[in-house]
């Protein structure tokens, strides 16, 4: 038996061996917060490794001048172009060799170029996710792993949720997903499917719209935010110095929802989209790298047809190729 000094050290000393670690950034492009998209796509297929951590700070800018009412494209001269900027901090920590914790919090500012919608700004939703690698199969230098993740997110503050120009929809969300990740020495592909259960939100006003299914006209302030399912496929090239990948994401409303319309509370809208994007990571120093990404909306439902650019710093050791 080989003596491993780290194993025998008491915990505080051991943690000083903790290495920063990254890979989160592979999926950062997604998480950078379209107001309606929240911090989804946070999860990638690369496990951090026990007691390894990374921290990423990413800025993004997203714009749209066209949006979808249900699935029909429209523009609104009283809205102009909507620009959303966000600064997101993501931390990842390996609780065990097969268990990671991922925490993220964005600060968001959004404004329209025309009309009289006020700018909205503030902390959006904090999210925490546990990811567990249930199985891994190694075939020579390739590896296939099957993972599960459970996440929860909630608004950090009581921001305005029922407006066309808003930083979020204000619901508490429970996210469950399963991930299949295949990795060869210089190539990976990850597929994941998840369900995001969105809780009720409290409107500022009593529900006062027409709903044909209502037997007892509603008496309250609370409405349900429709749940969505999500499919993400991501593939790319990994080397010691850089990573480059392309991805596809589709969110589909699962429960019934409303469409954007006069008086219709925005949180009850059925929101979906199909986006494609690309992400690049460049390692500059051992513990330090840069990331950049681009993504655009192919089609959507009750959401802006947005295009996003992002860039960020990643602190921690990059172990995607370990």
């Amino acid at each position: 038996m080989v003596f491993d000094p780290v194993e025998k050290l008491p915990l505080p000393i051991q943690s000083s061996y903790m290495r920063f670690n990254l890979t989160v950034l592979l999926s950062l492009a997604l998480l950078i917060v379209a107001p309606e998209a929240y911090a989804q796509g946070l999860i990638d297929g690369f496990m951090r490794g026990q007691r390894k951590a990374s921290l990423a700070i990413v800025g993004s800018q997203e714009t749209y001048d066209t949006y979808y009412i249900n699935t029909t494209e429209t523009k609104n001269p009283n809205l102009g172009t909507v620009t959303t900027q966000a600064l997101t901090v993501v931390g990842t920590y390996g609780l065990g060799y097969d268990l990671d914790l991922i925490v993220a919090a964005p600060y968001v500012r959004t404004q329209a170029s025309a009309g009289y919608f006020p700018k909205q700004e503030g902390f959006q939703d904090v999210s925490g996710t546990l990811r567990w690698e249930a199985y891994d199969y190694k075939f020579g230098k390739t590896k296939l792993s099957w993972q599960f993740a459970v996440g929860y997110s909630m608004p950090i503050q009581n921001y305005v949720n029922d407006a066309l120009v808003a930083i979020g929809r204000g619901s508490q969300n429970l996210d469950g997903r399963t991930i299949l990740h295949f990795k060869a020495p210089n190539f990976f592909i990850t597929g994941q499917y998840g369900y995001i259960r969105r809780g009720q939100v409290k409107l500022d006003h009593i529900v006062n719209i027409y709903d044909p299914s209502q037997l007892n006209p509603n008496s309250g302030l609370k409405v349900n935010v429709p749940d969505v399912t999500e499919l993400i496929v991501r593939a790319g090239i990994v080397t010691k110095v850089f990573t480059i990948d392309a991805w596809f994401q589709r969110q589909t409303p699962h429960s019934s929802g409303t469409d954007i319309g006069p008086g219709v509370p925005f949180p009850t809208n059925a929101v979906g989209f199909t986006r494609v994007g690309a992400t690049a990571y460049l390692r500059l120093l051992k513990q330090f790298g840069l990331t950049a990404g681009y993504n655009t909306t192919l089609d959507g439902r009750n959401i802006g047809k947005s295009t996003q650019l992002n860039a960020g710093l990643v602190i921690g050791h990059w172990t995607a190729n370990n």
Binding site: G194, Q214, N216, N218, K222, N224, D227, H254, S255, S256
Partner: peptide
């Protein structure tokens, strides 16, 4: 658990009795 979450239906608006 995942399948169960997918299977649940919920109303848009909560109704009082």
């Amino acid at each position: 658990l995942l399948l169960w979450m997918v299977g649940c239906k919920e109303p848009i608006i909560d109704e009082g009795v």
